[in-house]
Design a protein around this nucleic acid. Sequence first.
RNA 1: GCCCAUGUGGCGGAAUUGGUAGACGCAGCAGACUCAAAAUCUGCCGUUCGCAAGGGCGUGAAGGUUCGAUUCCUUUCGUGGGCACCA
Length: 908
Amino acid sequence: MEYQFKEIEQKWQARWKADKAYQVPNISEKPKFYVLDMFPYPSGAGLHVGHPLGYIASDIFSRYKRLQGFNVLHPMGFDSFGLPAEQYAIETGQHPAKTTEENIGNFKSQLDKIGFCYDWSREIRTSDPQYYKWTQWIFLQLFNSYFCNTQQKARPVTDLVKKYETSGSKDFSAEEWNAFDAKTKAEWLMKRRLAFSAYGEVNWCEALGTVLANDEVVNGVSERGGHPVIKKKMRQWYLRITKYADRLLAGLDTVNFSEAMKEMQKNWIGKSEGAEMEFAVEGKDEKIRVYTTRPDTIFGVDFLVLAPEHQLVKDITSAEQLGAVAKYLGYVKSRSDRERMAEVKQVTGCFTGAYAINPFNGKQIPIWIAEYVLAGYGTGAIMAVPCGDQRDFSFAQHFNIPVTNIIGQHFNGNEANATKEAVLENSGFLNGLQMKDAIGIAINKIEQDGIGKRKVNYRMRDAGFSRQRYWGEPFPIKWEDGVAIALSAADLPLQLPYVEKYGPGPEGEGPLANIHEWVEEKYETSTMPGYAGSSWYFLRYMDPQNEETFCDRKVSDYWGQVDVYIGGTEHAVGHLLYSRMWTKVLFDLGLIGFDEPFKQLVNQGMIQGSSRFVYRVQGTNQFVSAGLKDQYETNELHADVNFVDGVELDMEAFRKWKNGEFADAEFILEGGKYFCGIETEKMSKSKYNTVNPDDLVSKYGADTFRMYEMFLGPVEQSKPWDTKGIEGVHRFLRKLWRLFNDEVKGKIWTVEPPTDAEWKLLHKTIKKISYDTENFSFNTAVSAFMISVNELADAKCHKKQILEQLLILLVPYAPHIAAELWSQLGNPGSILDASYPTFEEKYLVESTKEYPVSINGKLRTTLNISLEASPEEVESLLLQNEVVQKWLEGKAPKKIIFVKGKMLNVVI
RNA sequence: GCCCAUGUGGCGGAAUUGGUAGACGCAGCAGACUCAAAAUCUGCCGUUCGCAAGGGCGUGAAGGUUCGAUUCCUUUCGUGGGCACCA
């Protein structure tokens, strides 16, 4: 009986489906475990072999936890709102709802072939009104909440209103508040809401009549069509995520993310501590406020620099410099953000003619404007300390501004030195202090003298939350007389209306602005961004059909945090930060019981494509094999990996490719073969290096495919795909099969009791596989399975007691074959719920050890010694050994190192 | 520029706490079985000197610590990723 993977896999997949084997209850005596995949955007291209990597890993882990007796939540769904579907709709006229539906169907059938244990009864789609009803509902919670600075948490806006009514705020008294009209009140409240509306800049493309995402703008022009793009002020929605900056930072210490991931989030939040202080402008009333992280260098300030967009520029510029400044402003305006970023090294700037006064020593300091100072960060103005900051130094040099040295020897006059170790000189009250100590003292003095105050700055901005698009969640907001009115929860969902056209509305508004009834109702015309639905989806899986609430509190208390979250690093700063913030808000409002969504995050690496190239001799139909290409003038062309065996091209398949574009190709061969060039690149259709999992599953089976993806290397590492090695894994499964069945004799497994050696073999495997699975080291687990099966085959062990335990270990990796053989062994019940074997130390106890014997640290021989032997006995055995004696040449050893159970080393 | 990864045979990779480098698999070579093919099985497979026994070298490079370093430290180079005139 052969290993008929096709029949076996179909049979078990059908049975598990019929038995609802993967449905998970919300009420259970078992401890819970939640394993989550980052849900996919259902693109039209379908899956390639890179996509399932993380899904297989999470599937293995889920099944492993289930066997260990956990109630495992392992759901899947679709992030089905988004730009590509809308783009496709614009091009083809097909409604996004329709294409999305088709793509999801395609994805699901691809996923099912691989044999995942998803509980599809919990499937969610972000574009489903029953789902986005609750996205809208959570938006209303954000809209109706503010961040209380005292308690450092979200609270209902009604609390804020009460406070205003009774005690006012720093901007108005209670009486004033109560006298405000509704619109004024709304404006004040908008300044505090967690989801708020304000004017902000968007990328506006006049020619396309639409707003573009940053990704769609390349080099200052639109990606489509290459039309100019300018910044335009429009009313936008934002999330006040900056209020959560500190908690988002602190929360990182409580979760198990990779250091790299935490680092990325920290960088994104970009917290810096320093001081904000004011410089008086000579002869004017204006004061210039600067932000610095190095107040200790205050005596080294040689000039101030304002961002060209700074509002004080026009007020302080002197009459003589008016012309020069206007010219410089014109220059800056002509430059795109990208140019400003690209040409970092270029020093430009312009003197304003005005001077500021250093508040500590009264020194007169010139005020410049320069594009290297950004309007959007800090106060848009800096104090320049050329001896300590390289950009300031380059600027001073370029414009011949004298440099004050406050760090003595540490400054060499040729480049700045940003040290904090130097002892300060020329620094008034800070003289003689080490810089790092001076920082605090300087801030205290600044605060004492009323010049400024301690200040924490963040690089992170409030998150833009509206898109001028169709295919997203409508905001549950009406605009009346310029005031945003929230819909009541009873009116949700506010359904996305059906449209015929997806083009932009007037004045850059979204397509919804073209719908008469929509505008008539005064609904907000923009929609929510892609990350809205994905910010809370892990909660909906817990309670997907609930019509009363987004997720019942009892249910979320049971499932709690996601124990393991698996996905790519591309979401490091977007999705992960937003969902962490939403979780914190929901926690603050008492709607859930935890404030970090993901306990552990595992980042799977990218599977890269391994591209193959053919070399066409210029201007001919001749293709030259890779080894000979240097003898010709050639053009490199991608060839489809699917008809290259290793590096050898299937010339017939190549001639038939692309409807015969290369039908009359001629080949210049090496040894009768055509060899292709190889390069590792991103997997993509245009590079013809994609491999479809369906093909591999139908050729080798899902079990082989799953194990091979894991065998490629560590999950977290990026690696190129190479189909060739899959044969090895398939051979392994066939070999496993032959432990149970013989092609001729049929059944060969027996119920004979195993020997000690066989038990030892099994328990060695149990130990290794459990350890590796627990630690996501799936590649070494696969290799341990291979070793185990090789050893069992060598030992001709066909004993049920051993084999059935091995099958349970295998379930997470290759569930179909494991289930089939389990039932062949005559076991009742489903192997999916068998109990995971526990490793017992007693089987692995050894009495002797084959010690490696080194002379001066170099291995020379091995020596089999009882583990009971005393150090003296070991030493005498060692010195009797002829190899050791040979190396000693009659001399006595200087030293003998004996580590029990490990090794022996003789120093001569 | 800064931060984080990472570098081991022809290839993917292993070595869990500083203790036998190259497990497992692919590819390759030789052989068995077969009329033949497939499948399967056996042996070899870092490099170099040597008939062999055995030895030299070897984990990007150079140093260091140690009885002993792929593993720890310093310097340096390459690759991948993130951030970036961030004051």
